[in-house]
């Protein structure tokens, strides 16, 4: 990708980018002004404005400016500055609170914005999961993210999308946090038997291709245990709870967005099959365990036996027969305590 294809960034993003690149040192005001093609006074004004939004800078005579502190909560300019230039999306929308990031991404696709469209919110008023279920989305330091995409692929080609995006998110977060995260087929991200991230993909079909796709992800980053509704406390957790202390939300979210956009690119050029086959067994929480799969009004019980080449869940029945599933909800059967 040539430099000309990079999305141009606003002056505050460019200032943050320059200062983030020099975390230990100083960047002179003259240098910043020259780099951005604006006056030193304009640079100074941008810095004051950023201070009002939770950033802290140090200015040293003759040396220049240094970034001391960034906001704890997700911040749009910081997220943009933290994204590697080749991963800055052509459309980036940020909301302190919105109805649902999936709905926003869907609307942005319909309005014709160039994709990939990245939508981030600190809170959702109507966050949703599979089949109209709600996704608890308070403003507690979590990430609500949607990617609006136009894959234009036949539906059969979309088959591994869910697993691939799940494994990509999982391996990034495992690498960054060091937590032993796993996936419950198809893509519930789990930590210590509790859900830490949920993903939902909604697609619009044309005659024979998947025209528009919205990939939504809710990740509990810093939510403290007491912010979960009582009925969810045994089912859901956050990275911070598992980690034992809060995590830097902005670098974590920016890194995750970059990884997911990269994963989507890999998926478009059909390069995901081998890495998925390699990664899935490392994340598969179900393999070898007794499970029940609910599909509509039917339930199937047996032992999970991994996935096939198309990503379908393989279920081994008590009689030894194998059955594969492309949809359904899995519960892990309770086994007697050891």
């Amino acid at each position: 990708m040539s430099e000309a294809e990079f999305t141009p960034v606003s002056p505050p993003v460019a200032i943050l980018g320059a200062l983030l690149g020099q975390r230990e040192g100083y960047v002179s005001g003259t240098q910043l002004a020259a780099q951005l093609g604006i006056s030193r006074v304009a640079v100074w004004k941008h810095l004051r404005r950023l201070e009002r939004q939770g950033f802290r800078f140090e200015a040293a005579r003759r040396r220049g400016h240094r970034l001391l502190e960034v906001p704890d909560h997700l911040h749009p300019l910081l997220l943009e500055a933290l994204l590697p230039p080749e991963r800055r999306p052509p459309t980036f929308l940020f909301f302190t609170s919105t109805d649902s990031t999936n709905t926003r991404a869907d609307r942005a696709l319909a309005e014709g914005h160039p994709d990939p469209i990245v939508v981030v919110a600190r809170a959702q008023e109507a966050g949703r999961g599979r089949l109209g279920r709600s996704w608890h989305s308070g403003d507690h330091g979590n990430l609500y993210l949607s990617l609006g995409l136009r894959p234009r692929l036949p539906p059969a080609r979309m088959g591994l999308f869910t697993l691939w995006m799940g494994v990509s998110a999982g391996s990034y977060l495992r690498g960054t946090t060091g937590l032993p995260l796993g996936l419950k087929w198809p893509n519930d991200l789990m930590a210590d038997g509790k859900k830490v991230a949920g993903m939902l993909t909604e697609a619009k079909m044309d005659a024979d291709q998947t025209r528009e796709t919205v990939f939504g992800l809710g990740l509990n980053i810093n939510a403290p245990a007491d912010t979960f509704p009582a009925e969810l406390r045994s089912l859901a957790t956050s990275l911070a709870i598992e980690h034992g202390s809060p995590l830097p939300a902005n670098p974590l979210a920016a890194g995750l967005i970059a990884r997911l956009l990269e994963a989507y690119e890999t998926f478009l050029r059909d390069g995901h099959r081998d890495p998925l086959a390699d990664l899935w067994p490392q994340f598969d929480l179900l393999k070898g365990r007794p499970i029940t799969l609910h599909q509509g009004t039917s339930t199937f019980s047996g032992t999970a036996a991994g996935i096939d080449a198309r990503g379908s869940l393989i279920l081994k029945s008590p009689s030894g027969g194998l059955q594969t599933f492309r949809a359904g909800e899995v519960t892990i059967a309770k086994t007697a305590a050891p």
Binding site: L200, T201, K204, M205
Partner: peptide, 13 residues
């Protein structure tokens, strides 16, 4: 139609 946790909205042809 849900397939591999993708909720596909199916249009009338």
């Amino acid at each position: 139609i849900e397939a591999m946790k993708i909720m596909n909205e199916i249009p009338a042809d």
